[in-house]
Protein backbone atom coordinates (compact mmCIF):
# COMPACT_ATOMS: atom_id res chain seq x y z
CA UNK A 1 0.00 0.00 0.00
CA UNK A 2 1.18 3.49 -0.73
CA UNK A 3 2.08 5.63 2.22
CA UNK A 4 0.37 8.68 0.86
CA UNK A 5 -2.88 10.13 2.10
CA UNK A 6 -6.02 10.99 0.24
CA UNK A 7 -6.92 14.27 1.88
CA UNK A 8 -10.39 15.61 1.22
CA UNK A 9 -11.02 19.07 2.61
CA UNK A 10 -14.54 20.44 2.90
CA UNK A 11 -14.57 24.20 2.87
CA UNK A 12 -16.28 27.08 1.23
CA UNK A 13 -16.70 30.81 1.34
CA UNK A 14 -18.01 33.05 4.07
CA UNK A 15 -18.48 36.80 4.11
CA UNK A 16 -15.29 38.67 4.85
CA UNK A 17 -15.38 38.82 8.67
CA UNK A 18 -15.02 42.57 8.56
CA UNK A 19 -18.23 43.17 6.72
CA UNK A 20 -21.28 44.47 8.46
CA UNK A 21 -23.88 41.75 8.23
CA UNK A 22 -27.57 42.43 8.17
CA UNK A 23 -30.25 39.79 7.96
CA UNK A 24 -33.11 40.08 5.50
CA UNK A 25 -36.05 37.78 5.07
CA UNK A 26 -36.58 36.43 1.60
CA UNK A 27 -39.05 33.94 0.20
CA UNK A 28 -36.72 31.10 1.12
CA UNK A 29 -36.18 32.26 4.68
CA UNK A 30 -33.51 34.44 6.18
CA UNK A 31 -30.46 35.55 4.23
CA UNK A 32 -27.89 38.30 4.35
CA UNK A 33 -28.51 41.68 2.85
CA UNK A 34 -26.53 42.00 -0.37
CA UNK A 35 -25.28 38.45 0.15
CA UNK A 36 -24.06 38.07 -3.41
CA UNK A 37 -22.19 41.36 -3.27
CA UNK A 38 -20.43 40.98 0.05
CA UNK A 39 -16.74 40.33 -0.36
CA UNK A 40 -16.09 36.79 0.71
CA UNK A 41 -13.13 34.81 1.87
CA UNK A 42 -12.32 31.16 2.41
CA UNK A 43 -13.91 30.08 5.67
CA UNK A 44 -11.05 30.64 8.12
CA UNK A 45 -11.09 27.26 9.85
CA UNK A 46 -11.58 25.40 6.60
CA UNK A 47 -8.63 27.43 5.33
CA UNK A 48 -6.48 26.13 8.16
CA UNK A 49 -7.65 22.64 7.32
CA UNK A 50 -6.68 23.14 3.69
CA UNK A 51 -3.21 24.43 4.55
CA UNK A 52 -2.68 21.59 7.00
CA UNK A 53 -3.78 19.12 4.35
CA UNK A 54 -1.40 20.57 1.80
CA UNK A 55 1.40 20.54 4.33
CA UNK A 56 0.74 16.91 5.17
CA UNK A 57 0.51 15.97 1.49
CA UNK A 58 3.87 17.56 0.91
CA UNK A 59 5.49 15.48 3.60
CA UNK A 60 3.83 12.20 2.66
CA UNK A 61 4.74 11.27 -0.92
CA UNK A 62 1.99 10.09 -3.20
CA UNK A 63 -0.64 12.06 -1.32
CA UNK A 64 -3.34 14.11 -2.95
CA UNK A 65 -5.60 16.95 -1.78
CA UNK A 66 -9.14 17.59 -2.94
CA UNK A 67 -11.16 20.61 -1.93
CA UNK A 68 -14.91 20.06 -1.86
CA UNK A 69 -16.65 23.42 -1.96
CA UNK A 70 -20.34 24.17 -1.81
CA UNK A 71 -21.24 27.68 -2.87
CA UNK A 72 -22.77 29.74 -5.65
CA UNK A 73 -20.70 28.90 -8.71
CA UNK A 74 -19.81 32.49 -9.56
CA UNK A 75 -18.67 33.19 -6.03
CA UNK A 76 -16.65 29.99 -5.89
CA UNK A 77 -14.97 30.98 -9.11
CA UNK A 78 -13.93 34.26 -7.57
CA UNK A 79 -12.76 32.59 -4.39
CA UNK A 80 -10.60 30.18 -6.34
CA UNK A 81 -8.67 33.06 -7.85
CA UNK A 82 -7.17 33.77 -4.48
CA UNK A 83 -6.86 30.37 -2.87
CA UNK A 84 -5.73 28.47 -5.92
CA UNK A 85 -2.41 30.31 -5.64
CA UNK A 86 -1.85 29.05 -2.13
CA UNK A 87 -1.54 25.27 -2.21
CA UNK A 88 -2.05 22.51 -4.78
CA UNK A 89 -5.45 20.84 -4.75
CA UNK A 90 -8.09 19.47 -7.04
CA UNK A 91 -11.46 21.20 -6.79
CA UNK A 92 -14.81 19.48 -6.47
CA UNK A 93 -17.37 22.26 -6.85
CA UNK A 94 -21.00 22.09 -5.80
CA UNK A 95 -23.27 24.86 -6.96
CA UNK A 96 -25.52 25.81 -4.05
CA UNK A 97 -25.91 28.20 -1.20
CA UNK A 98 -22.99 28.97 1.06
CA UNK A 99 -25.24 30.93 3.41
CA UNK A 100 -25.35 30.40 7.12
CA UNK A 101 -29.04 29.62 7.43
CA UNK A 102 -28.85 26.25 5.74
CA UNK A 103 -29.20 23.09 7.76
CA UNK A 104 -26.05 21.11 8.52
CA UNK A 105 -27.88 17.85 7.81
CA UNK A 106 -28.63 18.94 4.26
CA UNK A 107 -25.16 20.33 3.72
CA UNK A 108 -23.60 17.14 5.06
CA UNK A 109 -25.69 15.09 2.66
CA UNK A 110 -24.44 16.89 -0.44
CA UNK A 111 -20.86 16.99 0.80
CA UNK A 112 -20.84 13.27 1.62
CA UNK A 113 -22.33 12.55 -1.76
CA UNK A 114 -19.62 14.58 -3.46
CA UNK A 115 -16.87 12.85 -1.51
CA UNK A 116 -18.26 9.47 -2.50
CA UNK A 117 -18.24 10.60 -6.11
CA UNK A 118 -14.53 11.41 -6.21
CA UNK A 119 -12.95 9.08 -8.72
CA UNK A 120 -9.96 7.19 -7.47
CA UNK A 121 -10.47 8.06 -3.83
CA UNK A 122 -9.28 5.25 -1.60
CA UNK A 123 -11.08 4.93 1.68
CA UNK A 124 -8.19 3.33 3.53
CA UNK A 125 -6.08 6.38 2.74
CA UNK A 126 -8.81 8.93 3.40
CA UNK A 127 -8.43 11.77 5.85
CA UNK A 128 -11.49 13.98 5.73
CA UNK A 129 -10.62 17.52 6.78
CA UNK A 130 -12.75 20.55 7.44
CA UNK A 131 -13.14 23.42 9.85
CA UNK A 132 -14.38 22.80 13.38
CA UNK A 133 -17.26 25.13 12.51
CA UNK A 134 -17.98 27.51 9.69
CA UNK A 135 -17.97 31.24 10.21
CA UNK A 136 -21.45 31.35 8.69
CA UNK A 137 -23.68 28.57 10.01
CA UNK A 138 -21.32 28.27 12.92
CA UNK A 139 -22.84 24.95 13.98
CA UNK A 140 -19.78 22.79 14.41
CA UNK A 141 -21.82 19.80 13.32
CA UNK A 142 -21.40 19.33 9.61
CA UNK A 143 -18.10 17.45 9.48
CA UNK A 144 -19.25 14.84 11.99
CA UNK A 145 -22.36 14.21 9.91
CA UNK A 146 -20.35 13.88 6.72
CA UNK A 147 -18.10 11.41 8.51
CA UNK A 148 -21.07 9.50 9.84
CA UNK A 149 -22.59 9.28 6.36
CA UNK A 150 -19.32 7.91 5.09
CA UNK A 151 -19.20 5.43 7.96
CA UNK A 152 -16.08 6.91 9.50
CA UNK A 153 -16.15 6.58 13.27
CA UNK A 154 -12.69 7.91 14.07
CA UNK A 155 -13.48 11.59 14.41
CA UNK A 156 -11.74 14.56 15.98
CA UNK A 157 -13.02 18.07 16.59
CA UNK A 158 -11.13 21.34 17.08
CA UNK A 159 -7.81 19.83 16.06
CA UNK A 160 -4.72 21.96 16.36
CA UNK A 161 -2.05 19.41 15.58
CA UNK A 162 -1.69 16.19 13.65
CA UNK A 163 1.52 14.18 13.68
CA UNK A 164 2.05 11.06 11.63
CA UNK A 165 4.03 8.68 13.85
CA UNK A 166 6.68 6.29 12.58
CA UNK A 167 4.22 3.37 12.63
CA UNK A 168 1.78 5.32 10.50
CA UNK A 169 -0.56 6.12 13.37
CA UNK A 170 -1.92 9.62 13.77
CA UNK A 171 -1.32 11.61 16.91
CA UNK A 172 -4.03 14.22 17.25
CA UNK A 173 -4.32 17.20 19.58
CA UNK A 174 -7.86 18.43 20.09
CA UNK A 175 -8.85 21.54 21.98
CA UNK A 176 -10.89 20.73 25.06
CA UNK A 177 -12.05 22.71 28.08
CA UNK A 178 -9.70 24.55 30.39
CA UNK A 179 -7.14 25.50 27.73
CA UNK A 180 -6.11 21.85 27.47
CA UNK A 181 -5.49 19.55 24.58
CA UNK A 182 -6.70 15.99 24.51
CA UNK A 183 -4.05 13.76 22.97
CA UNK A 184 -5.32 10.77 21.04
CA UNK A 185 -3.65 8.29 18.78
CA UNK A 186 -5.62 6.93 15.86
CA UNK A 187 -4.34 3.83 14.15
CA UNK A 188 -4.62 5.46 10.72
CA UNK A 189 -7.08 6.48 8.04
CA UNK A 190 -9.94 6.74 7.48
CA UNK A 191 -10.59 9.55 9.95
CA UNK A 192 -12.36 12.88 10.17
CA UNK A 193 -10.44 15.87 11.46
CA UNK A 194 -12.30 19.11 11.97
CA UNK A 195 -9.63 21.74 12.49
CA UNK A 196 -9.33 24.72 14.75
CA UNK A 197 -6.51 27.06 13.77
CA UNK A 198 -3.68 24.57 13.51
CA UNK A 199 -0.19 25.96 13.58
CA UNK A 200 0.57 26.92 10.02
CA UNK A 201 0.67 30.45 8.67
CA UNK A 202 -1.21 31.24 5.50
CA UNK A 203 1.04 30.18 2.62
CA UNK A 204 2.27 32.87 0.24
CA UNK A 205 0.75 33.17 -3.21
CA UNK A 206 2.68 31.03 -5.62
CA UNK A 207 1.93 31.70 -9.29
CA UNK A 208 3.07 28.27 -10.38
CA UNK A 209 0.77 26.56 -7.93
CA UNK A 210 -1.98 28.75 -9.36
CA UNK A 211 -1.20 27.73 -12.92
CA UNK A 212 -1.29 24.05 -12.04
CA UNK A 213 -4.50 24.29 -9.99
CA UNK A 214 -6.24 26.25 -12.69
CA UNK A 215 -6.11 23.26 -15.02
CA UNK A 216 -8.56 21.48 -12.76
CA UNK A 217 -10.41 24.41 -11.21
CA UNK A 218 -12.11 25.75 -14.31
CA UNK A 219 -13.31 22.35 -15.56
CA UNK A 220 -14.50 21.56 -12.03
CA UNK A 221 -16.50 24.75 -11.93
CA UNK A 222 -17.96 24.01 -15.32
CA UNK A 223 -18.93 20.54 -14.12
CA UNK A 224 -20.38 21.84 -10.84
CA UNK A 225 -23.69 20.18 -10.17
CA UNK A 226 -26.57 22.09 -8.64
CA UNK A 227 -26.68 21.19 -4.96
CA UNK A 228 -29.75 22.78 -3.50
CA UNK A 229 -29.45 23.10 0.25
CA UNK A 230 -31.88 24.87 2.53
CA UNK A 231 -33.30 24.33 5.98
CA UNK A 232 -36.27 22.13 5.32
CA UNK A 233 -38.55 21.88 8.33
CA UNK A 234 -37.09 24.91 10.06
CA UNK A 235 -39.32 27.89 10.74
CA UNK A 236 -37.33 31.03 11.42
CA UNK A 237 -39.44 33.29 13.59
CA UNK A 238 -36.95 36.07 13.96
CA UNK A 239 -33.39 36.89 12.98
CA UNK A 240 -31.78 39.92 14.52
CA UNK A 241 -28.45 41.58 14.94
CA UNK A 242 -28.20 42.30 18.62
CA UNK A 243 -27.63 45.94 19.31
CA UNK A 244 -24.92 46.30 21.85
CA UNK A 245 -24.44 50.02 21.58
CA UNK A 246 -23.31 51.41 24.89
CA UNK A 247 -23.08 54.96 26.11
CA UNK A 248 -19.34 55.13 26.21
CA UNK A 249 -17.81 57.47 28.71
CA UNK A 250 -14.64 58.67 27.01
CA UNK A 251 -12.11 59.75 29.59
CA UNK A 252 -9.49 62.12 28.23
CA UNK A 253 -6.83 64.06 30.06
CA UNK A 254 -7.14 62.08 33.27
CA UNK A 255 -3.75 61.58 34.91
CA UNK A 256 -2.41 58.05 34.68
CA UNK A 257 -2.46 57.58 38.44
CA UNK A 258 -6.09 58.46 38.62
CA UNK A 259 -7.04 56.12 35.78
CA UNK A 260 -5.12 53.35 37.50
CA UNK A 261 -6.92 53.97 40.78
CA UNK A 262 -10.29 54.01 39.07
CA UNK A 263 -9.47 50.75 37.32
CA UNK A 264 -8.27 49.05 40.45
CA UNK A 265 -11.47 50.07 42.26
CA UNK A 266 -13.49 48.69 39.40
CA UNK A 267 -11.54 45.44 39.26
CA UNK A 268 -11.99 44.92 42.96
CA UNK A 269 -15.58 46.12 43.03
Amino acid sequence: MSSGFHLVVCGSLVPDPLQTLEPVTGPAGPALKNEMMLPSVLDPWAGHALYEAAHLAESAPDSKVWLVSLGPKARLQQLMMSIAQKVPFELVALDGSAGGFTDPTEVAAVLANAVQGIAGLERDRLLLFGGCASASRDAGATMQMVGERLGITEQFLAVDELTVECDGSLKVLERIEGAQYQISVCAGPPAVLAWATGNLPEPPNNPQVGMVNMRSVMPALQRAQPAPVAAEGVKFLDVTVPRQQRDTRIVRDMPVDEIARELVDWIRG
Partner: peptide, 30 residues
Protein backbone atom coordinates in the same frame (compact mmCIF):
# COMPACT_ATOMS: atom_id res chain seq x y z
CA UNK B 1 -6.98 56.76 20.08
CA UNK B 2 -10.21 58.32 21.30
CA UNK B 3 -11.75 57.43 17.95
CA UNK B 4 -11.15 53.70 18.31
CA UNK B 5 -13.99 51.20 18.23
CA UNK B 6 -14.30 51.08 22.00
CA UNK B 7 -15.17 54.76 22.03
CA UNK B 8 -17.99 54.15 19.55
CA UNK B 9 -20.36 52.47 21.95
CA UNK B 10 -18.47 49.22 22.33
CA UNK B 11 -17.16 49.87 25.84
CA UNK B 12 -18.70 51.46 28.89
CA UNK B 13 -15.57 53.44 29.59
CA UNK B 14 -12.68 54.31 27.31
CA UNK B 15 -9.57 55.77 28.89
CA UNK B 16 -7.59 57.70 26.33
CA UNK B 17 -4.15 56.94 27.67
CA UNK B 18 -1.01 54.91 27.22
CA UNK B 19 -1.75 51.39 28.43
CA UNK B 20 1.92 50.83 29.28
CA UNK B 21 1.80 53.65 31.80
CA UNK B 22 -1.64 52.84 33.16
CA UNK B 23 -1.08 49.12 33.60
CA UNK B 24 2.29 49.69 35.24
CA UNK B 25 0.56 51.90 37.77
CA UNK B 26 -2.33 49.45 38.15
CA UNK B 27 0.18 46.70 38.92
CA UNK B 28 1.80 48.92 41.49
CA UNK B 29 -1.52 49.55 43.20
CA UNK B 30 -2.55 45.90 43.06
Amino acid sequence: DAGCGWGQGKADVLYVADAFDVMTKVNELL
